[in-house]
């Protein structure tokens, strides 16, 4: 028997929204430590990895490991029926072919039950190697979302370069080109709150190209967390991480594009 309850059901809905356009279906791996998920987009360019710790749940019980094969679009349909303040419970039997989603309103006056059919998904777990990144940037997630959205109006590939000066996003397209640079916030400005601050940890300068359409997809997760971390390396995937307080994280990996040889 697997059972978990999340006070802020809305958070789970947002998670699924930020996955479903990238990955069609995937396996929720539930064990005694929490729930994790890994999925690659169909062209093998991007990978999404999510982990939710059991501590983040109001209730968490997992007697034996359970794998829930989920079609995210279908799950999204069910989660649309949830009120924004509802509590969410998920239940599943070890060998069952469906999972139960229960929504309960704040005042416990409304209860909704939905059963989602599970799928058999043949998927290999991919080991993501821990690597030392050359540059790690922490910035407000809304800022990243805005930059990606604005730049994609001009071109489809963004070049991200991290230097001592700051982090530069540049784009070129048929109509012209442009760039946006963010500088590290002055350490003097610290007023106890480090949100809205841009921090760059740089080992050495690095520059990589990425497809903007994927980045636009990833930044859908902006509502999950006010801050986002970008990790860059040479000839390595970019990692974009959104941390959710106490609950866990969602990470996106994106393979770079190679420079035009021409």
């Amino acid at each position: 028997m697997f059972e978990c309850t999340l006070i802020q059901g809305e958070l789970f809905r947002k998670l699924i929204v930020s996955i479903q356009d990238l990955v069609q279906d995937g396996n929720f791996m539930c064990d005694s430590n929490g729930i994790s998920l890994q999925g690659m987009d169909s062209s093998h360019v991007a990978l999404v990895a999510m982990a939710l710790k059991k501590e983040g749940f109001a209730d968490y019980r997992c007697d034996r490991d359970v794998t829930l094969g989920i079609n995210f679009a279908n799950l999204g349909k069910i989660l649309k029926c949830m009120g924004s303040k509802d509590r969410l419970s998920i239940r599943a039997q070890e060998e069952g072919d469906s999972a139960l989603f229960v929504f309960e309103s704040e005042d416990s006056n409304r209860m909704s039950n939905f059963e989602l059919k599970l799928m058999q998904i043949d998927q290999e777990q991919l080991g993501v190697p821990e690597t030392q990144y050359k540059a790690v940037i922490r910035m407000p997630s809304s800022e990243l979302q805005r930059i990606c959205k604005d730049l994609s109006a001009i071109g489809d590939t963004v070049s991200i370069s991290a230097t001592k000066e700051g982090i530069k996003f540049s784009v070129g397209g048929d109509i012209g080109s442009g760039d946006m640079t963010l500088r590290q916030s002055d350490s003097g400005e610290v007023d106890g709150d480090d949100s809205e601050k841009i921090m760059i940890e740089l080992e050495e300068p690095v520059q990589q190209n990425f497809a903007l359409r994927y980045l636009n997809n990833f930044t859908k997760a902006s509502s999950l967390s006010s801050m986002v971390t970008l990790s860059l390396g040479t000839d390595m995937p970019l990692v974009i991480e959104y941390k959710m307080d106490n609950l866990g994280y969602i990470r996106y990996y994106l393979a770079p594009k190679i420079d035009d040889e021409a």
Partner: peptide
Amino acid sequence: SRQCTIFAP
């Protein structure tokens, strides 16, 4: 493509 992949399919 000039687009790399994360893991080879």
